[in-house]
Nucleic acid binder design. Sequence first.
RNA 1: GCCCGAGUGGCGGAAUGGUAGACGCAGGGGAUUCAAAAUCCCCCGCCGCAAGGCGUGUCGGUUCGAGUCCGACCUCGGGCACCA
Length: 873
Amino acid sequence: MDHMSRYDAKLVEPKWQAEWDKADVFRARRDETRPKYYVLEMFPYPSGRIHMGHVRNYTMGDVIARYKSAAGFNVLHPMGWDAFGMPAENAAMAEGGHPADWTYRNIADMRDQLKPMGLSIDWSREFATCDAEYYGQQQAMFIDMMEAGLVYRKSATVNWDPVDMTVLANEQVIDGKGWRSGAEVERRELTQWFFRISDYAEDLLDALDGLEKWPEKVRLMQRNWIGRSLGLQFGFATTGAPAGHERLEVYTTRPDTLLGASFAAVSPDHPLAKALEKDNAEVAAFCAECRRMGTSEEALETTEKRGVDTGITVRHPTDGRDLPVWIANFILMDYGTGAIFGVPAHDQRDLDFARKYGLDVIDVYFAEGDDTPVGDTAFVPPKTDLVRYARACAGPEMQTGEAAIEAAIAAAEAAGFGTGVTKYRLRDWGISRQRYWGCPIPVVHCDACGVVPERKENLPVELPRDVSFDKPGNPLDRHPSWARTACPKCGKPARRETDTMDTFVDSSWYYARFTAPRAETPTNLADAEYWMNVDQYIGGIEHAILHLLYSRFFARAMHKTGHLPAKAIEPFDALFTQGMVTHEIYVTSDANGRPVFHLPEEVIWKDGKPFVEGGHLLLEDGGKLPLEDGSPLKLEDVKVIPSAKMSKSKKNVVDPVNIIGAYGADTARWFMLSDSPPERDVEWTAAGAEAAWKHLSRVWRLADEVRAAGDGDGAADTALERATHRAIDEVTRGIEGFAFNKAVAKLYEFTNTIARSGAGAGAQRAALRVMAQLMAPMVPHLAEEVWSMLGGAGLVARAPWPEADPAMLVEDTVTLPIQVNGKRRSEIAVPRDMAKEEVEKLVLADDAVVKALAGGAPKKLIVVPGRIVNVVI
RNA sequence: GCCCGAGUGGCGGAAUGGUAGACGCAGGGGAUUCAAAAUCCCCCGCCGCAAGGCGUGUCGGUUCGAGUCCGACCUCGGGCACCA
């Protein structure tokens, strides 16, 4: 046996990585004579370990990058780090140390883990958003945006932990309590910085139609998020309200239901509620309670609907009834006017509220032919359905909701009590964070001059290094000297802004920075002009709304401030959202019935059933913690749950480093591309990884055998050539269409075809060289090895993509299945372009058809040329 | 609660409205081997001895023909503006 007859990824992969480095294959240089292609995967947060989701994401991007490069494009494929954020501060609080050290150490670790994957990345463009060089440019843009009127301050609510005296993120609020202190969280108002994204609401909405290479679901989610609505705004005249509240402005998207109104309601944050709070104890108590709710919309919507009657009434604008005014916990101050009228019959929330507090339920419209009054389910048909209005504001009795809304607005405008108003659900983007590890907002507060932007020559406003995290709250706020500065305008002593920016700001323009990562301005226009837009953006569906919407806004703002060309206001031409990587979890329960998760290596398989040693929890550091009552776990209770998202707490994380160490990067890459469609979740399985490795070894072995056989008789083999062209065609279409799993399946098939073909060594060699090219985007190291073994010239990474000859793709005969009444009964082989009449004759003579007809004539004979025949009896 | 997705053999999945299950995993059988590993070959949706019947989350509809289109529902996943 030949000592080299086994594929050794450990030797082969570093060898070709060194070759690529030596030839500097992946450095992207601006070259106006060549068409460019910009591939970008969402950059990672430097948690310290790469995970399988990264492997999947970057493998997909690499396939595209390498394929486009072979197809003749000048490819830009960069990598960086989304490096600001809470985890670094949390680590500093938990383990001591400094967020910067933690972050840069993690970046170094992750870069070391990533490089063995053999990605075609131009590492010379790498940066981290926490580099002062990067965030200084971000500050320059912030100042430009201030001058362009895109930035302002206003009061907004935050989650306040009264014990830790700190602002909490939504994820840090658990069941209304602070995650560390356990104290009831309060909503508190602070003056904060905002970007005027809502100025662009209409444009951001309308431009979605042009994003044809984005998934329809993402466009739909953004459309709904922006939420354009045409509604009616009008003022109710109030009775019994405090001075200044003689009118209550409400906004409704269903003015056609005005005659079904039975109450009005305002948000607990509404000025009227605040006015009443002063001398109404009941209202004060209710508002105080509402303020203990988190700020998230989810918290608001899922809490039980409750309210308090203010005793104030409003006069209905058309029928003159007096309606009670309530304060209700489900009314958002941020949407519309923060006040509504309730129509219980046609809104489930209003109905629940009305039933709870004994308010009237007045039916406005009914389904055709059904006059049943509403019970406990509100009648809310689609607006496009025709319904019968028993209490129409305007328009005919039978009309759609859409038509009735329009008619109601027109009527209100004619009567002079209201106006049709287009509103958006999209709110301005609050970017203030009361935290250290983020980009400082570059402004100065001066007693004489007010809020003044820092001078650009003083940028970057750098984070101070000497901070402590031994107590909660913003370290910038309590730093003894950092905030002390001179006013950029008058020079008198002034104080720096201590808020930092939302990390979404950092990730809203990194794609533009990659086009000129060392420029001394945020972008270099010549580079941006050449490289923008991102031709293919790839990332997780979890970013479908916020990150992508903020980036679209930011690109517009960068254009307005002169940092991007007009063509780049939609920065991502094509978007692909990949699924998660999941892995099974092993769960038992402790004595209190709470779930206990187990590492795969803790699970013992006996007779195909999982067991764990009882009586302890395994800690992350490998230590053991006895269960609270010391009782052993019930061994028979181990449950295996497939397809759980990989997470530390569920102990089902598979570390790519181990996989790459055991099998090599190509195996991990091949596995990530096999089987599951890229947009769907993929389950990591040990068996799948083993199978991927086996196949790659088989390809290598095949190449080794063919090499050993020399050139053979040099005879061509038509069948193998046809198979080769079919493989080129299908793999190419698989990659172009983001159907990598299908491209992989085709390559499996092609391997079988070559291995089983009786073709001579020369013909097999030619086929295998094409296979090396087709596999190169996916498993680049193996591809280089096979390519060089079989006499390929230069690097396969530099070889042009093979082209399929259309003449080699057509088959002369086709098999036509014959159905009788839609069920397959037989089949015939016919020349590809046989006339319909000829086919019909053959079909009617077919044994199965003759038998089914039993002497009768068919009712119908359907022949779909080249596809199928259906005999209807 | 609201918005958006996804459900096909034991498993991952394939299928311009046209043969459901390509390709792979697992499983079964065989070859090779002193033996094993590795490798190669064959079988493999379910029920049935067979003929045949049943099958793409559930229920209904459109069609010569539905995994695919339409309606209702169920389950799971993503997002909900301070996780990234």
